[in-house]
Computed example of a mutant assay.
Amino acid sequence: MDAQLPDVEAGKRFYGELFGWAYEDAYGTSVWARKDGEPVAALAHKTDGRMPTVWTVHFSTPDVRALLRRVEQAGGQAVRAPLRDGDLGVAALAADPEGAVFGLWQPGTYPGFGTRGTPGTFAWVQLYARDTAAANAFYGALFHEALFGAGAEPEFGRAAVADVFPAEMPPHFLVHFRVGDCAAATGTVQRLGGRVQAGPFDASYGTVAVVSDNQGASFALLER
């Protein structure tokens, strides 16, 4: 997953203090975030001011182009065509039929998360949709084995937008980072100039708070 930010240096300070991340130069002004030496995310400079400041989750696939065709055949659309990032891998952006944007990643030498599910790392992604039955059909067909196959560890959920947000909120993915104390972490977010949008509240997968950083990128904190 990565965050597209107007100011990467400010992002480094915010997430470094919140999650204890260290950083390594990646490409251009982008950086990889590391927790205990393992890659957990990337922070990238947002080059187009018209684009939103967001966190984007990328789903791994052995063939980006083939999966993008399946997205389009199922009623979704390509947002950004596949782009090779040296020998690291191939990335693309897609949107589901309701417009929720997600990434696709065909690994090369960079497989993705080095660690997850521990404090300061990825723990869950929640899709907020308007038509949850349609979302079940769309993503179930695309990612059935990855999401529901034998031995798969649940890391993906979906809910109705109105369960947490105003009904007019567009459908979207919300990445969750694991924390030891959700209430304390929301206090840190506010001290660093971020904002609490909702919660903490109890969800089926833990205690959640929806927050945004000091540049407006939304994410969630998850205690479980």
Rank of each mutant, 00 (worst) to 15 (best):
V208G: 02
V31M: 02
G157S: 14
K46C: 07
E24T: 14
E17W: 04
R191K: 13
S30I: 00
K35E: 07
A152T: 10
P154S: 09
A134M: 10
F165V: 00
F59I: 04
A41V: 05
G187Y: 10
M1V: 01
R13E: 14
L5C: 08
D63N: 14
V71H: 02
L222W: 05
D131V: 10
V79A: 06
A94F: 07
A10D: 00
M169H: 12
A198Y: 13
C182F: 08
E168I: 00
K35T: 05
F113W: 12
R80K: 08
Q190I: 02
L5H: 03
Y23D: 08
E9N: 11
A184R: 13
G114I: 08
P171D: 05
G149A: 05
R195M: 13
A22N: 11
L221A: 02
A162R: 10
P171I: 02
R195H: 15
P200I: 03
D36R: 06
F59Y: 14
A133V: 15
A78Q: 08
E155N: 07
G11S: 07
V161S: 07
D85K: 00
R69Q: 15
F148C: 00
P166A: 05
L104P: 11
A26N: 12
A78I: 00
A41N: 10
A198S: 14
G103T: 08
A42Y: 05
A150L: 05
G140A: 10
R70I: 01
A91M: 13
T121A: 08
A44P: 02
F201Q: 10
G193T: 08
V57Y: 03
V71M: 00
D25K: 14
Q73L: 12
V208N: 02
G199Y: 11
A209P: 11
A160K: 08
A159C: 01
L43S: 03
E72N: 06
P170S: 04
Y139F: 12
S60M: 10
L88W: 04
H58G: 00
E38T: 13
D7K: 07
E155I: 02
P82M: 10
Q126H: 02
V208T: 04
S218I: 12
A152M: 04
R70T: 11
Q4K: 12
A146W: 04
S218D: 14
L127R: 13
V196C: 06
R178N: 09
V210G: 01
Y27G: 01
P111N: 11
A26H: 13
D213P: 01
L192Q: 11
P111M: 09
F19H: 06
A74Q: 12
A3V: 13
R34T: 15
K46N: 15
P154F: 08
A78W: 00
D202E: 15
Q190K: 15
R158F: 13
A22C: 00
E17S: 11
P200Y: 03
K12W: 03
V179M: 09
A66C: 01
V161K: 06
F177G: 03
A185Q: 09
G187H: 09
G20E: 07
A160P: 09
G16Q: 11
G117M: 05
A183S: 13
A133C: 09
T53G: 06
R69E: 15
T186E: 09
N136L: 07
R191H: 09
E223G: 11
Q190T: 15
L221T: 04
T188A: 12
F148D: 06
A152P: 00
A91H: 07
